[in-house]
């Protein structure tokens, strides 16, 4: 059934910290590396060494420039993968039942054996989280590494999504967002975690932590504790400089 579950017991998902992401794309590489040889069809590339390379990725890192009304511009690296929405529009449009959201943990998955490759779910997703693989002709998406997180053949430390495990700046966190006491939930509360495109009504499980605002560049002088004592006594220069100032004014 491609109807959504009324509620899910857990909401497994990611919390992505835009403040610490350095835009290294390691998550992109580890995601592709793990998922091309595990769950479902491989993530194919077309002419990867040719003139017009293209391929399937479940996770892509964008970079944005943000220009405040006043002050310095800010560069924000922005990893984007499936947000495992509570109200996932990609699931209900599926005509075959291939797309589904799991009741036990909320992960949105594609049963590739039932996918007819119509592409309608990719149209329904506002985030661009689904990509049709050009070789296998089925829809690919983030599985939250469902084949890692429950995999008892892996050491416990590795039972997290590949992107989380590999991130060198700890910008990606994995956990249960339905549990208010989980690390990820507390992180969301502490840092003001936000939804992407809330107006689309998708109720995404994944949250993004906003970057800190770079508003201190103009306040270098404030840092000096002696400043009040070093304040300029008079605006009018004296002596030779005063004479020069007046002379130049008269010209």
């Amino acid at each position: 059934m491609t109807s959504l579950p009324d509620s899910t017991e857990r909401k497994l998902g990611l919390v992505i910290d835009l403040d610490t992401c350095v835009g290294c794309h390691a998550c992109v590489v580890s995601c592709k590396g793990w998922n091309t040889e595990n769950y479902g069809a491989p993530l194919s590339d077309q002419t990867p060494y040719g003139a017009d390379p293209s391929g399937t990725f479940l996770n892509r890192v964008h970079s944005y420039e943000v220009q405040p009304a006043q002050g310095a511009a800010q560069l924000v690296h922005f990893p984007k993968s499936c947000l495992h929405c509570d109200n996932a529009p990609c699931v209900t449009v599926c005509p075959t039942g291939a797309s589904y959201k799991r009741q036990e943990d909320g992960i949105v998955l594609v049963n590739e054996d039932a996918c007819i490759g119509c592409g309608l779910c990719a149209w329904a997703c506002p985030y661009g989280a689904r990509e049709m693989d050009a070789a296998s002709k089925v829809m690919k998406k983030c599985t939250l590494c469902v084949d890692r997180i429950y995999n008892e053949n892996l050491p416990e430390i590795d039972r997290v999504p590949a992107c989380v495990r590999t991130c060198p700046s700890n910008a990606r966190h994995f956990g249960d967002l339905a549990d208010p006491d989980s690390d990820v939930s507390r992180l969301v509360v502490a840092r003001g975690g936000m939804d992407l495109m809330p107006e689309q009504g998708t109720a995404p499980v994944n949250k993004y932590l906003p970057p800190r605002i770079k508003d201190r560049l103009d306040r270098i002088d404030d840092a000096d504790v002696l400043e009040p004592f070093l304040d300029v006594v008079t605006d009018q220069p004296k002596g030779f400089l005063g004479w020069l100032d007046k002379a130049l004014d008269k010209i």
């Binding site: 964008h62 944005y64 420039e65 405040p68 924000v76 936000m194 495109m197 809330p198 906003p210």
Partner: peptide
Amino acid sequence: SATGLGHIGRVSAFE
């Protein structure tokens, strides 16, 4: 709204 960065300033695609 897509990036959630609108509260900081004007967002443009850098790369």
